[in-house]
Design a protein around this nucleic acid. Structure first.
Lengths: 335, 335
DNA sequence: CTGAAAGCGCTAACAA
DNA sequence: TTGTTAGCGCTTTCAG
């Protein structure tokens, strides 16, 4: 049905060889200006576009990269994707987004799908469920360039980009302490995510710095990262059921913050109040909950940096042995 | 660097011809079960994957489709994408998502980028800015299968999927009327979008049915679809400045609803109240604004149907001349 | 400055 | 049941 014009067609029409046309179209210096002009004009007139598949096959490169995130309907990730795209387009790369929905199984399928040469490299933020990394190890072992961002794993020798989760969590928790709260709960993400441990650590540090003893019963994990609202509700209900209720909560993520606020609205009695601070890149949350103090990650920047690192890996002609672990700083937005 | 195993490698190792291997791997009936087993085992052991580029080049098909939406960080579109993916994966298609950010220019670039054989077909929801369709007309004219969904244009002979915007808007407006409001404003999307006209129409119908005269000054458009918060604030400020302020607003979209609620929070005096109803597929909005009545579109279903139609176009061996304009129904969620 | 030819990996006639 | 061959569209030596 859809039969685009090829280099051969142009060559025939202009009575030249395909190689000449190819060269002219990539603006080779060894082609007569006159001829070049003729070719380019003809190509434009018949709106020729290079067949990317043939080109890729020839080069052994697809000029596209795969991004694996848990979901795109998430301010943090969509901002990161914008950052990725901003670099990718500039360097002539395509971006293929794929969502794991925080399911291990889907993550495996998607990565497999992307991997075999359909992409030149992978930008991965781990799913909340993933504990076994062999699907990635395999590809990485065969030399597929991979950069991890945000939810990283350190069992691989490669570049990573994260934000300063410890410091962010510390600042967030401290902001609650500064407002006079002492019984501060922590609503955490899935336990085996890198960000979960780091943020928990920051929370603990803040408590320690102010001589507040850590109460393990005030820390609750959400194994599905809040994707299942039920688990958030369970956690909030648990907090509300305690003899000594917490007077504030420090929440580990965007989605959890939303879940937490809405669960609280639903479960708590009218007159009950609870102060919440947490990680969030959501404008909506800002807008609708003016009192909400949040830790903002430089998501766009993170995407940008990750993509730049990936391109560096892809385009390097020698194997790379030195890896960077970039840590960007977070920002406290309090009101 | 990354050098995956090819059919030729397998053939060599097993002392067979590439074609035999190829056939075995696509489970051809004409290959000896014994040989087939050997080949498949070897392939699995060395985890062979078919090079999609070569395969595509050969078939003249990429088995991937492009999706063009304004943004993914939007409940409606991310749900629609989930619907699209659910069908696509089942049928062996890849989904390449690209965001126009409601900019005409980016839409043109993205579509160009996707079009030339990198994809077998396109699923498009128009950007708010787009008035000129020649970039699409061109491709469509050359036979590239295209299905429009949600924000459609009817200057093309092809399938479309929308929801019943008129009826949704009518129900939403009526719900406000039922609650006793008479001065109902309408915060509309960009004027040249199909959905804008339809929703405006539904709003008018509801007013008419209840004998409320239409006051044109109560209708305000957002030319950037609410992407620029300023324009939403301007509209809200305008409503608040009227001598006869509206007592309710019917809002045309997700993003506008958020913008509107937050602008109102920001601009209106404490004691001022305003009832809002509007189109929205956002869970967050539901959660944080319990009083918000919304019109929900079957986004997932819309994606599903659009993708099925597209596959039908792609896989049809004859030119298709009969086109369907599917309209799915919307749902009123009131509280 | 231009052309001929080979080959990226895969598949499908055609032959055997 | 298996092999041979040609070619998808593009690029790049190598040879004029």
């Amino acid at each position: 049905m859809f039969k685009p014009i090829t280099i051969k067609d142009i060559a025939q029409a202009l009575e030249l060889s395909p190689s000449t046309v190819s060269r002219a179209l990539s603006d080779s210096y060894e082609i007569n200006e006159e001829t070049k002009k003729r070719i380019i004009e003809y190509a434009e007139k018949h709106n020729y576009r290079r067949n990317p598949m043939a080109s890729s096959l020839r080069h052994g490169r697809s000029y596209s990269i795969g991004v694996v995130v848990c979901e795109v309907a998430n301010s943090f990730f969509s901002q990161a994707i914008d950052g990725i795209e901003s670099v990718a387009y500039g360097k002539g790369y395509h971006v293929i987004i794929s969502q794991s929905h925080d399911s291990y199984e889907r993550e495996v399928v998607n990565i497999q799908h992307l991997a075999n040469r359909a992409v030149d490299g992978l930008l991965i933020s781990m799913s909340a469920e993933t504990k076994d990394f062999s699907h990635i190890a395999n590809l990485h072992g065969h030399g597929l360039p991979i950069v991890f961002f945000d939810r990283i794993i350190d069992s691989f020798e490669t570049h990573t980009v994260t934000s300063n989760n410890r410091e962010g969590a510390r600042m967030g928790t401290q902001s609650l302490i500064d407002r006079g709260f002492r019984k501060i709960a922590h609503l955490a993400n899935a336990p085996h995510l890198s960000i979960t441990a780091e943020r928990l650590d920051g929370y603990k540090t803040a408590l320690k710095q102010h001589g507040i003893p850590l109460d393990e019963s005030l820390v609750r994990y959400c194994h599905h990262g809040g994707r299942v609202q039920q688990e958030v509700e369970d956690a909030v209900r648990y907090f509300l059921s305690l003899d000594e209720k917490p007077d504030a909560i420090f929440v580990a993520s965007d989605r959890l913050s939303m879940g937490c606020l809405s669960a609280f609205n639903k479960l708590a009695p009218e007159d009950e109040h609870l102060s919440v601070a947490g990680f969030s890149n959501s404008d909506v949350l800002d807008l609708l909950q003016p009192g909400f103090t949040c830790i903002r990650q430089p998501a766009f920047e993170m995407g940008r940096v990750a993509m730049e690192m990936l391109i560096q890996l892809i385009e390097s002609h020698y194997p790379v042995y030195e890896f960077e672990n970039t840590v960007l700083s977070t920002e406290l937005i309090s009101r």
